[in-house]
Deep mutational scan, measured.
Amino acid sequence: QTVHVKGVQYHFPNPEEAVKFALKVAKDLGGRVEFHGDEIHVE
């Protein structure tokens, strides 16, 4: 599972961890989380 944050990719073997990370980052940055297939983008 890959999380993209402002052009940087973070790889997580566990999808659940990836989602938790993405939600935390989005909250910290005041952004939103978008799901694109296997990828999660924080915009």
Rank of each mutant, 00 (worst) to 15 (best):
D38R: 11
F21P: 04
G31V: 08
F35A: 03
H4L: 13
K24L: 10
Q1M: 15
F12W: 03
H11F: 13
F12G: 00
G31I: 06
L29M: 12
G7M: 04
I40S: 01
H41G: 02
K20E: 12
E43Y: 15
Q1F: 15
H41N: 05
L29E: 05
K24C: 15
G37I: 06
V42A: 02
R32S: 10
F35Q: 05
E34Q: 10
V8Q: 10
T2Y: 07
K24W: 07
R32L: 08
E17D: 12
E17Q: 09
V3D: 01
G7F: 04
V25N: 03
E39P: 02
H41V: 10
G31H: 04
E16R: 08
F35I: 10
K24S: 11
V8Y: 09
E17V: 06
G7Q: 04
V25E: 05
A18W: 02
P15M: 15
G30E: 06
Q9G: 05
E34N: 09
N14R: 05
G30D: 07
E43F: 14
V19A: 07
H11R: 09
K24D: 10
K6Q: 12
D38S: 12
F35T: 05
T2A: 05
F12E: 00
A18Y: 01
V5Q: 01
K27Y: 10
D28N: 09
V33C: 09
E17S: 08
Y10D: 01
A26P: 00
F35N: 04
A18H: 00
V42M: 02
G30L: 06
E17W: 06
V25K: 06
V19I: 15
A22T: 00
E16F: 09
Q9A: 13
G37C: 11
K20Q: 11
L29K: 04
T2C: 09
Q1D: 04
E43A: 11
A18D: 02
D38I: 09
K6F: 15
L29T: 13
T2S: 07
H41S: 06
T2M: 07
E17P: 01
V8M: 11
H11G: 04
V3N: 00
K27T: 09
L29G: 05
E34Y: 15
K24F: 05
L29H: 06
